[in-house]
Amino acid sequence: MQSYSVRFRTGDIVFAEGDPPHGAFLIESGRIEISSSQFGERRVLSNLGPGMLLGEMAVIDDSPRTATARALTDCTLTPIDARQFAERLAAADPIVRALLMSQLSRYRSTLATLSGDTSPSRHVAPAASSDAFALDKIRLESELRAALDRGELEMRLQPIEEIAGGRVAGYEALVRWRHLQRGDVAPAEFIRLAEETSLIVPIGDYVLERVCEMLAELRRRGREPLPFIALNLSSRQLEDPLLVDRILARLRAHELPPDRLKLEITESLVLDHVRIAALLARCHEEGMHVALDDFGTGYSNLGALLTLNFDQIKLDGSFVRALDTSRGVALVGVVVATARALNCDLVAEGVETRAQREVLQRLGCGYAQGWLVGKPLALAEVLNGN
């Protein structure tokens, strides 16, 4: 059987300084010495052994070899094609890629200086557009952290209407960020950025506190019955075993009944049935309701509804937009019947026209949310009856 590995004898040159970067190697056995010419003298930079990569830096930034690799003992190496690195680097997180290229650029400059070449411009690769994007992403993350610390994230309440009675039964809490220089940053952009890091957890705590404050103010202003406010949970928040305890602590601090806070879990997160089932059981024990959000967005699994006891299903707006077709009406009718059979409330999201609302009412859908019902409002606008 032909081996995938290559062998070098003691003293063999694996590659020499100045060679083109055709590929890298994984050292299976033996030891490799890395050296470079510094001010006319050969200097040993490192000594590599089994399990270590060899020659990957030149492959990553597609630069000539800046050092020589020589076998100190008989060695067995597994070649790694340059395309393998290129594919993985292209698929990597842009921030990780930018950090790697930044470190590599500094290494090249330092190595060039030690070798007597003091022209940094020859050794620092120009930033690619993807690097510029990554650096802007790093900058935006830092600015988001600062905005959170300064309390600059704003809360909006989008009304949810009880269709039969035509009254606002509750609201969904939405967080907004108006950047001092960039203007309004799309929620999808900064929430996705926060979810990529641990930043989503303090943002979740911030939103929870603001929601409790808004509920307390609605009660203080005599809003009866007190509407519920729904807030979305992220996957990182769901990983916290003390999440419900922390939520209950904030509700008690504001003397609020647990049933006025509704938790929303997006459909893509219910694949972890055990964790979600435990959360639902605990919430129901404490009197809190939980909604399955974005139902029908591509992760639909009726098994989730069979095993997870949600109090509410929120139908994705794509179904509402299809209500002008017989197929769309039929599918929404099935969802309405399913929700009724499971004793769940059904909220149709993205309701924008009276015709859509009329079809939903005829089908027996309980609640509607969307621009027809009302746009997201600041608390002051809600209190003023806008």
Rank of each mutant, 00 (worst) to 15 (best):
D311F: 00
R223S: 09
N232Y: 03
M1H: 13
A330F: 10
E239A: 15
G11D: 04
E56K: 10
P159I: 04
T113F: 13
A169L: 10
V175N: 00
Y107H: 14
A355N: 11
F15K: 04
R150I: 02
L363I: 03
L331P: 01
V207E: 01
G11W: 10
A16W: 00
G55W: 09
D311K: 01
Y367T: 04
S3A: 14
S234M: 05
L372V: 01
A98C: 11
G366E: 14
C344V: 08
R122H: 13
T78P: 00
A69K: 06
V351K: 10
H22W: 10
R167P: 00
L215K: 01
T68Q: 02
A380D: 15
I313M: 12
D293S: 05
R236D: 01
R156W: 09
M52Q: 15
M57E: 13
R83C: 06
R65P: 03
I163L: 07
E154T: 12
G151V: 09
G40T: 06
L48E: 03
C212T: 01
M57R: 11
A194W: 08
Y171I: 02
P50K: 07
V44S: 06
A249W: 05
A216L: 11
Q84I: 13
E352F: 09
V59K: 11
D245A: 14
R31G: 02
N386M: 13
Q181L: 12
G23V: 08
I34Q: 04
E141Q: 15
A82C: 08
T197G: 01
S109Y: 03
V44G: 03
G296Y: 06
L383G: 01
A278L: 11
V347A: 06
C344E: 05
F133D: 14
H289L: 12
L372S: 05
R221I: 02
E143L: 10
G55V: 03
T307E: 13
G30Q: 03
A67Q: 04
L331R: 07
L261T: 02
A24L: 08
T353W: 05
P126W: 07
D245Q: 13
A281W: 09
R182N: 04
M1L: 12
A67F: 09
K262E: 14
E209S: 11
P159N: 02
R192P: 11
F8G: 06
T10Q: 14
G385T: 08
G170C: 00
A339Y: 01
E381D: 15
H22G: 12
Q38H: 11
L48K: 13
A188L: 06
G51Q: 10
R354E: 15
T10R: 14
A71P: 00
A348V: 00
F25D: 06
D205Q: 13
R70Q: 13
I229N: 01
V334P: 00
T197Q: 04
F15S: 07
N301S: 15
R156H: 15
P79Q: 05
D259G: 08
